[in-house]
Amino acid sequence: MSTDAWLLLGSALWETVYMVALSGAMSFLFGIPLGVLLYSTREGNILQSPLTNQLLGAVVNAARSVPFIILMVAIIPLTRLLTGTSIGTTAAIVPLTLASIPFVARIAEGALNEVPGGLVEAAESMGATPLQIISRVLLPEALPGLIHGITLTLVTLVSYSAMAGAIGGGGLGDLGIRYGYHRFDGVIMAATVIVLIILVQLIQMAGDHLHRKFDHS
């Protein structure tokens, strides 16, 4: 591969990492609290409110059923409003984040559901407030599950970001399509795929490592 090709690959990798990291961070920021709400408003849980729960659940389900490619196009006005543009890596972060928030929320809800109810009860018997139960009991106990979910989300984001790249977002997916598909450059195409595989591998390894570190059960 030529120096130019290496440079192309390098900047595409950077763009992918940038998109995944930022949209990942944003979706955890909003998705995890949403997951906590989904969990705690369920009937019998600490902030039970069946109506809120059903409403949130419906919104999350609706958001999850929109295919990513359609979501990306449909929210272009919002993307433009937030980033000032509708193409490019920064613009891609908006649909990527919006698509992952409900995904992260469900994963967080699932991780919280795995925490034995007895622990919440024990905390209640000690006079814990609902907020204390969430911060001192539920989230720490769900942490290993959350790390699993975060890893899964990041891996999914890598492949979604490749899709976003295909419509002008940049990144490894964009590079692979432009050179491999439109210009029949098999070498760059293969190199892109290899870099993607390594990236996903690294995310998974980091996730597994953290999971081991925080799982004491």
């Binding site: 007895g118 009860e121 024990a122 000690m126 006079g127 720490p140 106990e141």
Partner: peptide, 20 residues
């Protein structure tokens, strides 16, 4: 009630300790 519960300890059949 939360205040009063601090004055009432409780233990359980399945211990209910935090694994973390």
């Amino acid at each position: 009630l939360r205040q009063t519960r601090r004055d009432i300890g409780m233990i359980f059949q399945h211990f209910n300790l935090l694994s973390s």
